[in-house]
Computed example of a mutant assay.
Amino acid sequence: MLTGFKYVYLIAFFALLSGFFHPLVTHTSFDSVVIGVIVLFVGLAGSILLYKAAVSEKKRIIFLGIGFTLIFISLFYIFQITGRV
């Protein structure tokens, strides 16, 4: 039960962080909120893999490569959403 609660907490926190109340106030769609939550989860997955690379002995290079790749993808999505790419 505690494991499920932490995922609900993360989803709620990321939804608030990505601007959940903005579509409610401006009466627009929630597409940007959903995309923002996905981008934050991709970045979180990358940072978790970087942490696993720091504590792992055998698969350090794999975790580093995939972790930095996911963080780069998240950063690319952020630049794409803001229109800088």
Rank of each mutant, 00 (worst) to 15 (best):
V25R: 11
G83M: 02
I38S: 04
V25G: 06
F68N: 09
I73F: 05
V8I: 12
A45P: 01
L2R: 15
G46C: 01
T69Y: 02
F14E: 00
L64M: 14
V55S: 11
I38E: 02
G4S: 11
V33A: 10
L64W: 12
S47M: 10
K58H: 14
G36I: 02
F21D: 13
S18I: 00
I71N: 02
A54L: 15
V25E: 13
P23L: 09
I38A: 13
S32I: 01
E57K: 11
E57M: 07
F30R: 09
F13N: 10
K6N: 08
F13S: 10
V85P: 07
I11L: 15
I61T: 15
S56C: 10
I48R: 10
L50Y: 00
Q80P: 05
L2D: 15
S32K: 12
V39A: 10
T28R: 07
S74Y: 00
A12I: 12
H22N: 13
I35S: 08
L75N: 12
V42N: 01
L16A: 06
K6W: 06
I71W: 00
I81D: 10
L16P: 04
F72K: 07
G67Q: 08
L24V: 05
R60L: 01
F76R: 04
L75W: 09
T26C: 06
M1L: 00
I73M: 10
I73D: 08
S47D: 11
V85E: 15
G4V: 06
V39I: 13
F79P: 03
Y51R: 04
S29V: 00
P23H: 08
S18N: 14
I11Y: 02
L16F: 15
F20T: 06
K52P: 02
K59V: 01
F5C: 11
G19W: 04
L40P: 00
T3Y: 14
Y9T: 12
A15D: 00
T26Y: 06
F41V: 00
A54F: 11
I35Q: 11
V39F: 01
I48T: 07
L10V: 04
L44R: 11
T82D: 06
I38F: 11
L16T: 08
V33M: 09
F20A: 14
S47N: 05
F41W: 13
A12Q: 02
V85T: 09
L2K: 14
V42T: 06
H22K: 14
S74P: 07
G67F: 04
L44G: 12
F21C: 13
D31L: 08
L16D: 01
V34A: 06
S18C: 06
G19F: 05
M1P: 04
F13A: 14
I48L: 06
F79T: 03
K59R: 15
V37C: 09
L16R: 02
V8D: 04
V39S: 08
F72H: 12
L50F: 05
L64N: 10
L16E: 03
T26N: 13
L75F: 13
E57N: 14
S18D: 01
V25Q: 11
H22W: 08
Q80K: 15
L40I: 00
I61R: 15
I66K: 02
I11K: 03
A53L: 03
G19N: 02
I78R: 03
G46K: 03
A15G: 01
S18G: 12
